[in-house]
Amino acid sequence: MSTLAAELRALPPTCGPVRLVAVDGHAGSGKTTFAARLAAALGGAPVVHLDDLATHSEFFGWTGRLREQVLVPLAAGRDAVHQVYDWTLRRFAGTATVPAAPVVLVEGVGAGRRELRPQLARVVWMELDAVSARRRGERRDGPELAGFWAGWARAEAAHFAADPSRPYAATRVDGVTGRIIPATVGESSTSS
């Protein structure tokens, strides 16, 4: 992890003074856990959780909120403040502050999407197939969210069919062990 952290710090800034790093993969693949470990290895790098910007009605409709509330301030070298969606109350309730740090992580399904890639220093992909990730997520969330998962799985499959992130990931991480897959760190990612 320290090798990846050092490599990310050495990348050129891509969003004003910030190196914006996406941690992407299927829901349940370990993105949040890995992002927390990577943030710690980076000395407490801020993490933007896309679950805070998505909503029940817009699973993938968060790009405008991310841009306006997070990317624009960070690009100007300012701390960002974004709204946080409450999945129980079904509305935005509260805010989170994202310091303009040397490296900022954005974690969530679709973090490496086409529209964001020009501002990303790196895309990290969690290698865990959709079926295994869904099983893990359903175990984590319990049977009361089974209906949510069914709708989510369809939306996620449609998203990745139209806008895959994995081909642009210069770093891939085993979604079971959390280990970086050899021969991925240092490969250049392709932009579109």
Score class of each variant (00 low, 15 high):
S2N: 15
S2V: 09
S2Q: 10
T3C: 06
A5V: 05
E7A: 14
A10Q: 15
P13M: 15
P17C: 12
V18F: 06
L20C: 02
V21M: 02
A22G: 03
A22W: 00
G25L: 09
A27S: 01
G28R: 05
G28T: 12
G28L: 14
S29V: 10
T33N: 05
F34M: 10
F34L: 09
A35C: 13
R37H: 09
A39L: 00
G43W: 00
G43F: 05
V47P: 00
H49A: 10
D52C: 10
D52F: 03
H56A: 09
S57Q: 08
E58K: 15
F59M: 01
F59R: 04
F60T: 08
T63E: 13
T63S: 12
G64A: 14
R67K: 06
R67L: 08
L71M: 10
A75T: 03
G77R: 00
G77W: 02
R78A: 14
D79N: 07
V81P: 11
H82D: 04
Q83E: 15
Q83R: 14
Q83M: 14
V84C: 12
Y85W: 09
T88Q: 07
L89W: 07
L89Q: 11
R90H: 14
R90I: 05
R91C: 09
R91D: 04
A93G: 04
G94H: 01
T95Y: 03
T95V: 02
A96T: 12
P99Q: 13
A101C: 10
V104R: 07
V104W: 00
V106K: 02
E107M: 12
A111Q: 11
R113Q: 08
R113P: 05
R114V: 02
Q119K: 07
L120E: 01
A121I: 10
W125H: 13
W125G: 06
W125P: 03
V131I: 03
S132W: 01
R135V: 15
R136T: 02
R136D: 02
R136F: 00
R136N: 09
R139Q: 08
P143A: 08
E144L: 12
E144D: 11
L145G: 01
A146V: 13
G147Q: 03
F148K: 06
W149S: 04
W149V: 03
G151W: 13
G151A: 08
A153K: 01
A153H: 06
A155Y: 11
H159I: 00
F160K: 02
A161M: 05
D163T: 01
P164W: 08
S165F: 04
P167S: 11
Y168V: 05
R172V: 09
V173P: 03
V173F: 04
D174R: 15
G175C: 05
G175Y: 07
I180L: 13
I180M: 04
I181M: 10
P182V: 08
P182H: 01
G186K: 11
E187V: 14
T190Q: 14
T190G: 15
T190S: 14
S192K: 12
